[in-house]
């Protein structure tokens, strides 16, 4: 369970989130909103990449501030650009990176890397150079490198933005099949229709919190209304 208790986030003078209080216990939560509305800030608060200026964020009762290390293990994070999160030149080396940080024995690392590669159909890529993979393969590698850590929650910040349609589908399918709780920030509204709950951000506020059947039309209208105002 994710709990935001009166959370505010400021960067210097800029206030990005204001007095946010909410509880999430759905398995699929989507976050949508205009550029700069605070989605990434919200996402980064979830695994303690940043900690709130005010208030507390708790995941299963653990505070992102006080229990930073436990939170990192509990909450995985997948970024928009896989190029900026792949650390090692070879696919299998990169997947092993997080496990090495946990100082796991070599044999266990190997078993877990094998399992993840098999699960995501990447056995044939295991010894390929990461920079020679396609965009979709790179994003699947980035996702695998996070999932191998067996987090309970996975936060995705625009995981499909840089991908073509086929790869968007592939990644969306992989996310849909996850046993974990997933919180997905996305501009690809088509992939959010099966989610349980959608948060619509606007200027640091949640202006709609509803299932996709209501929230997605609301968001489309919101964007269209702003369009009209700007002509």
């Amino acid at each position: 369970m994710i709990e935001f208790d009166n959370v505010s986030m400021r960067f210097g003078d800029l206030s990005v989130l204001e007095h946010l209080t909410l509880t999430l216990d759905e398995r699929r939560v989507a976050v949508v909103g205009a550029n700069g509305s605070g989605k990434s800030t919200f996402a980064r608060l979830l695994n303690g990449l940043i900690t709130p200026t005010e208030g507390t964020v708790k995941i299963d009762g653990l505070s992102t501030k006080a229990d930073a290390r436990a939170i990192r293990r509990k909450v995985g994070f997948v970024f928009q650009n896989p190029d900026n999160q792949i650390v090692y030149p070879l696919v299998e080396e990169d997947i092993a990176f997080g496990l090495k940080n946990l100082k796991l024995p070599k044999a266990e690392i190997a078993t877990r890397v094998d399992a993840v590669l098999a699960r995501y159909g990447m056995e044939t890529l295991r010894q390929r150079s990461a920079h020679l993979l396609s965009g979709g393969q790179k994003q699947m590698l980035a996702i695998s490198s996070v999932l191998v850590m067996e987090p309970d929650y996975v936060v995705f910040d625009e995981p499909t933005t840089l991908l073509d349609l086929r790869n968007k589908r592939r990644v969306a399918k992989a996310i849909a099949a996850l046993p974990q709780t997933a919180i997905v920030v996305s501009h690809d509204l088509d992939f959010l229709t099966d989610f349980e709950r959608v948060l619509v951000f606007e200027a640091g506020q949640i202006v709609c919190d509803a299932p996709p059947s209501q929230a997605l039309p609301f968001y489309r209208n919101l964007m269209a209304a702003e369009d009209m105002g700007n002509v």
Binding site: F77, Q85, G98, N101, L102
Partner: peptide, 16 residues
């Protein structure tokens, strides 16, 4: 920007 993102990604993967 890449360096910033990378630093975050590395700490998100439990590197300390």
């Amino acid at each position: 920007r890449m360096a910033d993102d990378l630093a975050e990604a590395i700490s998100a993967r439990g590197y300390d």
